[in-house]
Computed example of a mutant assay.
Amino acid sequence: MPVMNQATWEARAEWPLAGAAIVFLIAYSTQVIGKPTGTSATILTSVIWIIWTVFLIDYAARLYLAERRRRWFLRNIHELLIVALPMLRPLRLLRLITLLRTLHKIGGHALRGRLITYVIASVTILSYVAALTVLDVERNAPGATITSMGDALWWAMATITTVGYGDFYPVTVIGRLIAVALMIGGIAVLGVVTATLASWLVESVAAETTAEVESGDQALQKELAEVKEQLRLLLESNGTTASDDALAQRPSR
């Protein structure tokens, strides 16, 4: 039986944790948007706590299996904060970005297909998670401007694109931290898009230039071959003529 290590654990837990994140997303969305009461609220809260426990087990397992636990712990403080602090629990939904590997296959091997897939998926996940979280922390705050899911989604789209109209804005500390994270995420996505497009343009121009050079080289080589053939024929013709003249000029005995 192979020895379990951190890489093996992460590979095996990747999709189960992505599934748990989807269930968490559904439960949390229902809790925030629907605002259920009574038995429904109790069930949703229980589901959220169970999935949170799953994430806690995953964190503990990766820490235990790490070769250098102290180093891994220090490099993954954010993982501990996400598990330990209730206000950061929606950040676990970013595990859904794991699904981009499947979307990568759907997008095909064409660069533009992959680019469109990644951009749409990343923007959708980041925007929705940020909107849901900011609505949860802002809705009941004094002086809040984000009080509905529609407002939250509009704010998220304006923020991730770094437009920032200012008609809706967070008033709590947690809400502002979410806004900062969303702006950084938006800049990162735009940066990846810009870099990928630039790389694609450079590769396209280089490929076209190479094709033109190769085509020109082939044409030049063909012309040189024709010139060589004409020279060969001319030299052979001149050699034959000179030989005939010499025979004609030789005195007969």
Rank of each mutant, 00 (worst) to 15 (best):
L94G: 00
Y59Q: 08
R75M: 08
F168T: 10
R62D: 03
L65M: 07
G107T: 11
L153A: 12
P36A: 08
N140A: 14
E67G: 01
W52Y: 05
M157R: 13
L132P: 03
R89A: 09
L65K: 12
H109N: 03
R70T: 07
A84H: 05
I57G: 15
L132I: 15
H104C: 01
L85M: 10
T162Y: 00
I106G: 09
G34T: 11
T124W: 02
L115P: 02
T162S: 07
T39C: 00
I106W: 14
S127K: 05
K105L: 14
A144K: 04
L115A: 04
W49F: 13
R92D: 00
A66G: 01
T45R: 13
L44E: 04
A131V: 06
L115Q: 08
L94E: 03
L99F: 09
T37R: 15
L44M: 07
A156I: 04
I125R: 09
L115R: 06
P170T: 07
T53P: 00
A110K: 15
L99Q: 06
E138G: 09
E79P: 00
A84R: 00
D58S: 05
G34V: 13
G34R: 11
W154K: 11
G166E: 14
K35W: 13
E67M: 01
G108D: 13
V54A: 15
S122R: 09
R75F: 05
E79D: 10
L91S: 07
L85Q: 05
L56A: 15
R95S: 04
G166Q: 13
I57F: 15
T45M: 11
I50L: 14
T145D: 03
S46I: 14
I146W: 00
T159Q: 13
A121H: 06
I146Y: 00
W52I: 05
W72P: 06
I77N: 05
R69S: 11
S122V: 14
I106T: 14
I77A: 06
L85I: 12
R69I: 08
T159W: 04
Y59P: 00
R62Y: 01
I97C: 09
I120R: 04
P170M: 10
A61C: 12
S127P: 03
T45V: 05
Y169G: 01
A144I: 03
V119C: 09
R71Q: 15
V123H: 04
M149L: 14
I120D: 08
L96Q: 02
K105D: 09
L85A: 10
I77T: 06
T162A: 03
E138L: 09
Y128V: 11
A84T: 10
A60K: 10
A131C: 07
L111P: 00
S46P: 05
L85T: 02
D136I: 01
V83N: 11
G108I: 10
L44R: 02
L80E: 02
T42H: 11
P90Y: 10
T162D: 02
L99M: 06
L153H: 13
G164R: 10
L65D: 08
G107P: 04
T117N: 10
T45Q: 13
A66R: 01
L80R: 03
V134C: 06
A144R: 03
T37V: 10
P36Q: 08
L85D: 06
V137Q: 07
D136Y: 07
A152C: 03
G150F: 10
A60L: 15
H104D: 11
D136G: 02
G108Q: 12
S127V: 09
M149Q: 14
G166Y: 12
S148V: 05
